[in-house]
């Protein structure tokens, strides 16, 4: 029984390592900042779950398991936030290659909003990216 659990723990560690390798490869190989965020933040969540499961399987103690649960839960809640904040900043500062996007519905939406607000205020359409900041704060 113990051998089975140890082998399972070993397999999980290898899987976690492979996920980390893939994340590293994606970080280098993906074309722009937004794509790299996927590689940098996502596979590690499953990787972390695998590592934590491996620790739980090899130590087999309740106290350990109980301290591991918050590790996973906190990771699940914080990783999307950091990814969102960096992604959002990346989009707003134009730190991505728009020629690689097959569709950009946020751009369309901003254009629509600009059009509507300029019709209301009688301003000319077509503003630069820096002007979006103020718009967004008002909408919030």
């Amino acid at each position: 029984m113990n051998l089975v659990l140890d082998v399972a723990a070993g397999v999980l560690l290898v899987v976690a390592a492979l996920l980390s390798v893939a994340a590293g490869a994606g970080l280098v190989r993906f074309p722009d900042a937004l794509s790299r965020m996927h590689a940098g933040t996502k596979p590690q969540i499953l990787g972390l779950i695998c590592v934590v499961l491996a620790i739980a399987l090899s130590l087999r103690e309740w106290a350990v398991l109980l301290t591991l649960i918050p590790v996973v839960v906190l990771q699940l809640f914080t990783a999307p936030m950091s990814a969102h904040m960096i992604g959002r900043a990346g989009y707003r500062t134009g730190d991505f290659r728009s020629e690689l996007l097959v569709a950009d519905e946020l751009e369309d939406d901003i254009a629509r909003a600009d059009h509507v607000s300029s019709e209301e205020a009688g301003e000319p359409v077509g503003r630069t990216l820096d002007d979006r900041e103020g718009d967004d704060d008002r909408a919030r």
Binding site: P31, L100, V102, A103, D104
Partner: peptide, 10 residues
């Protein structure tokens, strides 16, 4: 092959 393209979806 890598990543050729991405998209922003609403």
């Amino acid at each position: 092959r890598g990543i050729r393209s991405s998209a922003v979806v609403e």
